[in-house]
């Protein structure tokens, strides 16, 4: 026979799924939230995201080429682009460009590439980048622009308190300050918070757009429901319990759910493949633990927002969760009548 046959082991067909497809679908699912952010905060949202993506891609490319001397293009898998978008989504839209670049260097250079690149990092690079910036530049990272100042708004944006900061005041202060916070928090419009008409990080403000992103991810089977649903449900239940126990000291469940980075974190950050558990049971445990930690940090901690720290803490527990919570083996499911 003229041409030799290829011999390999089964299976001989493949689903056609790829790393790139998954990464790009997550990026697509983030576009609605980016558009909403543009509407709320103006062109600053787009500029910040663009700088962050460019910096992340550049650092991954440079480290891969000049430090690791790896001839393969690891930027092509799309994970650096995604990290860039998510890092930007976790910052105020009026932040200085050099701070973004420092964050990107930490996220890609320290958290991702030093551990071995894609698939090997222990912590979510974008979140670790945000945590690094929050600790290093607490003022810049927590002066949030007010929404609705026109599409040209960037570094010149007026800033104000976010609903979560009000919730913190509600719990930590007394007297006139407490009364003021209570008045403001009860006057918050549910629809404003749901559709992104509030202050906050650039990607987190529009819950409606983030939920649309969740639907895209679920339909395209990029993620399963376990992690986002368990986080959101846990926070809803716990904050409801706290609110019912003392409505003047705690924010209500809708405020807790819609006011911070909960949806962004639950849908896009906690579901990061590399840093989340492998079995459905493990994913539920991880989600519930993130929910509990978020409520604890938000209510009793020093920072108004606890989502990113909760996820980072649970990232560290993922190997343990994987060891402890195995998928249900065939033969363990009881007979059904």
């Amino acid at each position: 026979m003229a041409n030799k046959l290829i011999v390999s082991l089964s299976p001989h067909v493949h689903s056609g799924d790829s790393v790139q497809k998954n990464m790009y679908w997550v990026c697509i699912a983030l576009i609605p939230a980016l558009l909403c952010s543009f509407i709320s905060f103006g062109v600053g949202a787009i500029i910040t995201t663009a700088i962050s993506v460019a910096a992340c891609v550049f650092f991954e490319w440079a480290i891969n080429k000049f430090m690791l001397k790896n001839p393969k293009c690891t930027v092509c898998d799309g994970s650096a682009i995604l990290t860039g978008i998510l890092l930007a989504f976790n910052m105020p839209s009026n932040i200085q460009p050099w701070i973004i670049i420092v964050g990107a260097l930490f996220a890609i250079g320290v958290v991702k590439m030093t551990f071995g690149g894609l698939g090997c990092n222990l912590f979510n690079p974008a979140l670790a980048g945000r945590a690094f910036l929050l600790i290093s530049f607490p003022v810049d990272m927590t002066t949030w622009p007010n929404p609705g100042q026109g599409f040209g708004t960037y570094l010149d944006a007026e800033t104000g308190a976010t609903p979560l900061a009000l919730a913190k005041q509600l719990f930590k202060t007394t007297g006139a300050q407490h009364e003021e916070a209570l008045r403001q928090i009860t006057s918050l419009e549910w629809s404003d918070m749901f559709f992104g008409n509030r202050g906050g990080c650039l990607g987190e403000v529009c819950a409606a757009a983030l939920i649309l992103g969740l639907i895209i991810l679920l339909v395209k089977k990029v993620i399963t429901w376990h992690i986002p649903v368990s986080i959101i449900a846990t926070v809803a239940v716990l904050s409801s319990i706290l609110y019912v126990s003392n409505p003047t000291a705690y924010a209500s469940a809708p405020v807790e759910l819609l006011s911070g980075g909960l949806f962004l974190g639950a849908i896009f950050m906690a579901t990061d493949y590399v840093t989340s558990p492998m079995s459905p049971k493990g994913q539920l445990v991880y989600g519930v633990a993130i929910g509990v930690l978020t409520v604890i940090i938000r209510t009793y901690g020093a920072y108004p927002e606890g989502m990113s720290f909760a996820i980072l803490i649970m990232n560290a527990f993922v190997p343990l969760i994987n060891n402890k919570f195995k998928p249900k083996r065939f033969g363990e499911v009881p007979a059904k009548k």
Partner: peptide
Amino acid sequence: LPCIRCAKCVGACPMGLE
């Protein structure tokens, strides 16, 4: 490519293995 720990193999395994 490197394993990205997406857990799709865990979801696909008909024997409930990893």
